[in-house]
Design a protein around this nucleic acid. Structure first.
Lengths: 215, 215
DNA sequence: CGGGCTAGCATTATCGATAATCAATCGAGG
DNA sequence: CCTCGATTGATTATCGATAATGCTAGCCCG
């Protein structure tokens, strides 16, 4: 009850799509998922609207909305985009971060570790995105945050789609610590290095057969 | 009647925001614009949802949704992003464009010229975005098209917000021709040059006076 | 006279019903 | 047997009504 209906269904559908429980090409009917999730058609409709805005589904007029396709070319391109956005954002963030904001970052990282300890992979993922987003927001580049969120969603979806997605959760959570350290120390070069390396580990081998571009 | 209610109100609100008829900070109540645009609350609600997805408004819980702020730092960053996306996309587009697709591009460009002849600035803008988007779609990087659309929306909004936005419409329309030519000829370097130059003209010197606030 | 509480109000959130629309299917005619 | 057209079924689109919620102004009490 505490959770609003609409964000609940958005979150749930997003989870299923990113986790590839809903595979590309699957068609969703508004009334169908309304019944599935025990809510009204309007709620589902609005949820699908925002999911479409995130690029996870495409609304095909009257013929249901379908889950979007994945391809490694696009995934690689989006990851590059993400890297660029985050690195540039982090550079600005150093000059602007306040103590309180850094504390909030720590809090999120701690929540991620807790989720990892519980073995809750999805929660880890959510906290991961929260953390990266929170770091980016320090840059003050407000209007770009949703773009980054989008990129993250897609990179994770692609990562989980690939067969080699098993990853140790606690290690994943721990990997964010040096980034926070560099941020707190105001060390720009270390931050760029650790953040860059971190981003590289996300899809380490995803397409090093396909990918030839600059790093 | 021919036009669906929902896309109509989305288009109208988007127009007002990009044209700065609705200024940053303005609050919109669902019922209010419903009355203004002669439609139901639900239609407005959904429209605001997609506008929020585009980053033009931010939905603030119970106190209405407000039009987002503009700042030149973000605008510059987004323009850089846009340039990168479009240039990389164009490089791929050359290898993939079919004759039919090129014809469609011509058609859009023609529509833009017509709109320019009519002095309809907004229509020119819409066709401009259509054209850039259509070109990008040739790259096959499907999931990134909405990101580009977003970037374009924001660059235009910022451009129109700045005082020096007067531009000759027919000249703007004509400026796209060499891009199409290069695309048809399959000349990658010329395409990159003309497209890059074109993007430079959008916000020629936006922010070299305003950009000092970072320090 | 000031502070906190309450009642009313403005606004969003959610729902169920109804209209509009498209696609596929079934049937009749050639 | 094939083709074209009407009918039907499924699904989205749109609306108005109702519930929930947070805010504000005004009132009561200390």
């Amino acid at each position: 009850m505490a959770e609003p209906t609409q964000s609940r269904v958005v979150a749930e559908l997003r989870r299923r799509i990113v986790l590839n429980l809903l595979t590309p090409g699957a068609v969703l009917t508004e009334l169908g998922v309304a019944q599935d999730l025990a809510c009204s058609q309007a709620a589902v409709r609005e949820a699908l609207l925002v999911l479409a805005g995130e690029g996870l589904v495409v609304r095909a007029g009257r013929h249901g909305t379908t889950v979007t396709d994945l391809d490694s070319d696009t995934a690689a391109e989006i990851l590059d985009l993400r890297r660029r956005i985050e690195l540039r954002g982090a550079r600005r963030a150093i000059r602007r971060a306040t103590a309180g904001e850094l504390l909030e970052l720590e809090r999120i990282q701690f929540a991620m570790q807790s989720a990892a300890a519980d073995g809750n992979a999805w929660a880890v993922l959510e906290r991961d995105m929260d953390l990266h987003l929170a770091i980016f927001r320090l840059s003050g580049l407000h209007a770009m945050a949703p773009i980054l969120a989008r990129c993250m969603l897609h990179t994770h979806r692609f990562r989980l789609w690939a067969p080699w997605h098993q990853r140790d959760l606690t290690e994943t959570a721990a990997r964010h610590r040096p980034i926070l350290d560099a941020l707190r120390d105001g060390d720009a070069t270390t931050l760029a290095r650790t953040l860059g390396a971190h981003l590289d580990t996300i899809v380490e081998r995803a397409g090093n057969d396909r990918r030839v571009r600059a790093a």
